[in-house]
């Protein structure tokens, strides 16, 4: 039994269980060092971009955990993002609870909502587009609730007064948020890196590749899908708190809209769905591009988004497996090429 399972897993997981390559490690180290020293060398404007990249990459990793690895395609991560943002912000403004604790409360709240969504969807065996639509509907419901509930400050949203006190998750200057964002991104990336080496991670991938086969081999698919969803929801809530503390204002039309969910998906598809570093690569590409178009087409409202949308469409058509997928394809081609015309395999 376990032998068959192992065999199936090996096939399902394929190449994704290999270690990192040397150029990969070098690139990662260089990027990390660059971000660490960036507050000393970059202007506030550029630091803002770095923080956005870190935040979006983190958000994308959260989506990647559940949709990339476990194959449960969410189009409603805005729900968890918004719940995190609202929980910590309201606890702070109404009760004076520090956002460090509010962040944990937000994680708990998102976990609870995530498990409700999960139990409902997975018990009724929703898959693919149907599951995506349910998550989208839930995010919309939270938007309507937030917009119409006076207790949640309705449409005007929650504003946080700036205090410059790190115990309240407010830092002087951008450096604090650069480091906070870097730590979050490093933690979730490490989490995914380790996860895909564990049995749980392998089960996630098996479920993504063929859920029926996974169930037939004795994997409790319901339990693992729930695990992926709830973890993803909890981590996403942290991104919400981060956003609220950085921009100091949230409202339903900022945190609960489908653009947030799209923000979480784009870097993954661009970089490579279900890969450890794909979402980071994706965020490093899409955010500067988006910033560039914003600046260059500032005189013509809408032109920036036309360019952005076109790039998105072209990338999805040209690179269906993302940058990582492209790199793999090139590597495989090289590996298959015989060294000399006479060289034979296995000799």
């Amino acid at each position: 039994m376990s032998n068959i399972t192992g065999d199936f897993l090996k096939r399902a997981v394929g190449r994704k269980n290999k270690g990192m390559s040397v150029p990969g490690i070098l690139l990662l180290t260089a990027a990390t060092v660059f971000v660490i020293i960036s507050p000393q060398i970059l202007s506030n404007y550029r630091l803002n971009l770095i923080i956005t990249i870190l935040r979006i990459a983190y958000l994308a990793q959260c989506w990647n955990l559940m949709s990339g690895y476990c194959g449960q395609f969410s189009f409603g991560h805005a729900a968890f993002f918004g719940i995190g943002a609202y929980t910590s912000s309201l606890l702070y403004t109404e009760l004076g609870v520090t956002p460090w604790i509010g962040m944990l409360a937000g994680m708990a709240a998102a976990g609870v909502i995530g498990s409700i969504i999960g139990v409902l969807s997975f018990v009724y065996n929703l898959k693919g587009d149907y599951f995506a639509l349910v998550t989208l509907a839930f995010a919309e419901i939270f938007r309507v609730i937030a917009r119409n509930t006076p207790f949640l400050k309705a449409a005007q949203g929650v504003s946080i007064t700036y205090k410059k006190d790190w115990t309240q998750m407010q830092f002087s200057g951008k450096a604090g948020f650069v480091y906070f964002g870097l730590i979050l991104l490093a933690l979730i990336t490490l989490f995914l890196y380790i996860l895909q080496r564990t049995r749980t991670g392998q089960y996630f991938i098996a479920i993504r590749e063929n859920e029926d086969a996974a169930r037939a081999l004795g994997i409790n698919t319901f339990r693992y899908k729930m695990t992926a969803l709830v973890l993803s929801a909890m981590f996403t809530a942290v991104a919400g708190t981060f956003y609220a503390q950085y921009y100091l204002h949230i409202d339903p039309e900022i945190v609960f809209i489908s653009e947030v969910s799209v923000d979480a998906i784009i870097p993954c598809i661009l970089g490579g769905v279900g890969t450890v570093f794909g979402p980071i690569i994706g965020a490093c590409i899409i955010e500067p591009v988006s910033e560039f178009t914003n600046v260059h087409f500032a005189s013509l409202p809408g032109m920036n988004m036309v360019t952005y949308g076109l790039i998105l469409v072209i990338v999805i058509i040209a690179l269906p497996n993302g940058v990582v997928g492209l790199a793999d394809r090139i590597r495989e081609k090289r590996a298959r090429r015989p060294l000399s015309p006479n060289a034979t395999e296995g000799v």
Binding site: F73, I265, I269, G302, M303, N304, M305, V306, G309, L312
Partner: peptide, 17 residues
């Protein structure tokens, strides 16, 4: 399906803008 969905979302962004 996430690629397909995001592609149509991209088309929507292009058309609207």
């Amino acid at each position: 399906s996430h690629n397909q969905l995001l592609l149509t979302q991209g088309l929507s962004i292009v058309l609207e803008n």
